[in-house]
Structures are given as structure tokens and as C-alpha cells.
């Protein structure tokens, strides 16, 4: 069964088209990586998938239902880039945040035993039970992102959507965070991950969607590296921006950034093959 289904979806902010004619399906149990250059509409596509925004054209379905009418909130969990400002300032504990995962089921009234149990299990599962009474603001970035994953686990969500969750993390906590996502995916959770680091996505995700307004590639992760989709998607930006000197200059920086992860990817896959030996 498909978790998310996009059919010829288009979306624009005012007159500026951000998503143009994208169709793709995310099967249940899939780990989809969404990649593309800055401003390519990755995050917008993610929020369209979750029904947070409605497409100007085309249709989005969540678990076979129209996305904006979909009402089983507990089946969907969302982890943002970093809610640092609120998370740092607001006096709220890890357990209080993880409990939010149960809110779609128990928005009012008392928490049931099942609610309490799900919260404690989720805390254990991502190994933050010992931090449960700490303030979220006092945690490291990596611990904090685990809290949000625990919230998704407490919800017993079927679909976990993450928007560049590891931007603020160091390499080690990023690795262990993606290990955790891999485990969850193996246990059956559908994951859609927006990620700027192409190396990470191609090694972790089962499928890749590469976009820049339009879909440039959608297929198995191991086929992505061999395709020329990456160059095409990043190149598309270059053509659009080339007529403006400042932007073009700006873009070279992005371009460089875009290549780095590709090298990274080689390094990571080399590591993986060593491990396999």
C-alpha cells in the first residue's frame, strides 16, 4: 500500500513556481530521501506530502485519503530542522515533549495506561530515558533530535517526515541519528527525509527523489549515483540564475557545496564496504 502519493502536483508562492508537475509514490516501509539544491522546493514538497499546504494543481494522497482531509494525526510525525529557539528558551522537559506524541490520541482528558506506556517505551527505544526529566534546552543537538524521534515513536506513527534534521549536528551524532532512523525503517516505519547531504541519503535511504522544481530522478538509491540526475538538477539552477551576476556568484558557492557531498558519499560508501569485509 502506498503511504504518500503525488499526482502531477504543482505549487507556487505567489507568481513563483516552487513545485512543477511532480508525481511520485512512497510505498509503506520505504525510506525515501528527498534531495536537491537550495531553494529546489524540497521542504515545500514535504509539507505538501503531509497536507500542511494544498497544491495549486494535482492531488496529494496520504494512506489513500486526500492529504488535506486526512485526519489520523497519530499516523504522521514531523521532525523539523531544529526548533532551537523555542526548544532552548521554553522550560519544557524531554518527557513533556515525548508525551505530545500521544496528544492526537488523547487531546483531552486523562492519559490512559497505554499512553503512559508508549511514552516510556519510546524514551527507552531512543536511549534517552535517563534524560526524561531534563529540560530540552539543556540537551545537545543530537539528543534533542532523538527527543523528536521519540515523540514520533510514542505516537506509533506510520510515517515519519524529517526536514534536514541533522543540519546542526556534529558528524558523530549525525551518524548515530541516521543509524536510529535506519533501525526504525527496518522495523517498518515509512520515512521521508529531506537532506542536503547527498552522501548520507544515498547510503541510508532505499529510494531517492532528486528535484529542482521538477523531478529529475526517482528510483533506487544505488542507481542514483550512476545517473546524471544530480548534475542536471543542480545545473538547472545554474541556467536560471546565470543571467544575474550576483546570483550566479552565489550559486557557485552552492555548486561547490553540491559537489562536496558527492565526494563524501564515496568516502561513506568506502567505509561501508570495509565494514562488510
Amino acid at each position: 500500500m502506498t503511504a504518500v502519493s503525488l499526482d502531477d502536483v504543482a505549487f507556487s508562492y505567489g507568481d513563483i513556481p516552487v513545485i512543477d508537475g511532480i508525481s511520485l509514490d512512497v510505498a509503506q516501509g520505504e525510506f525515501l530521501g528527498l534531495v536537491g539544491p537550495n531553494g529546489s522546493g524540497k521542504s515545500t514538497l514535504l509539507s505538501l506530502m503531509l497536507g500542511l499546504q494544498r497544491p495549486d494543481h494535482g492531488e496529494v494522497q496520504l494512506f489513500g485519503e486526500s492529504a488535506h482531509q486526512f485526519s489520523d494525526g497519530e499516523r504522521i510525525a514531523y521532525v523539523a530542522q531544529d526548533v532551537t529557539k523555542t526548544a532552548r528558551d521554553m522550560p519544557i522537559t524531554v518527557r513533556e515533549v515525548v508525551r505530545m506524541g500521544r496528544y492526537p490520541r488523547s487531546l483531552f482528558g486523562r492519559f490512559s495506561d497505554a499512553d503512559h506506556e508508549a511514552v516510556e517505551t519510546a524514551l527507552d527505544r531512543v536511549a534517552i530515558a535517563d534524560l526524561a526529566d531534563r529540560r530540552v534546552g539543556s540537551l545537545s543537538g543530537g539528543q534533542r533530535q532523538r527527543v523528536f524521534v521519540a515523540r514520533a515513536l510514542a505516537a506509533e506513527a506510520d510515517l515519519l517526515a524529517l526536514d534536514e534534521p541533522t543540519v546542526a549536528l556534529d558528524a558523530a551524532s549525525r551518524e548515530s541519528f541516521y543509524d536510529l532512523l535506519g533501525d526504525l525503517n527496518e522495523a517498518g516505519m515509512t520515512i521521508v527525509l529531506v537532506e542536503h547531504d547527498i552522501g548520507v541519503v544515498t547510503t541510508r535511504a532505499s529510494r531517492i527523489a532528486c528535484l529542482n522544481k521538477q523531478l529529475y530522478f526517482h528510483g533506487r538509491a544505488d542507481e542514483f549515483a550512476d545517473s546524471d540526475a544530480l548534475a542536471a538538477a543542480y545545473g538547472a539552477n545554474q541556467r536560471v540564475l546565470a543571467h544575474d551576476h550576483t546570483d550566479a556568484h552565489d550559486h557557485h558557492a552552492h555548486g561547490a557545496h553540491g559537489h562536496e557531498p558527492t565526494n563524501d558519499s564515496n568516502a561513506t560508501s568506502a567505509n561501508t564496504s570495509e565494514e562488510q569485509q
Binding site: 509539507s47 503531509l50 500542511l52 486526512f70 485526519s71 489520523d72 494525526g73 497519530e74 504522521i76 510525525a77 514531523y78 521532525v79 523539523a80 526548533v83 523555542t86 526548544a87 521554553m90 519544557i92 513533556e96 515533549v97 505530545m100 496528544y103 492526537p104 488523547s106 487531546l107 483531552f108 523528536f148 515523540r151 505516537a155 517526515a161
Partner: peptide, 18 residues
């Protein structure tokens, strides 16, 4: 609970259909 959820993480709250 809805007040707290929206205060802390409005996007996640919307995704959870609050």
C-alpha cells in the same frame, strides 16, 4: 495539551492534525 503542542512546535502540531 493542544495549547502546549502548538506553543512548542506548531508545524508538528499541524502534521498531527491538531
Amino acid at each position: 495539551r493542544p495549547l502546549l503542542f502548538v506553543t512548542f512546535d506548531e508545524t508538528a502540531a499541524r502534521a498531527s492534525r491538531v
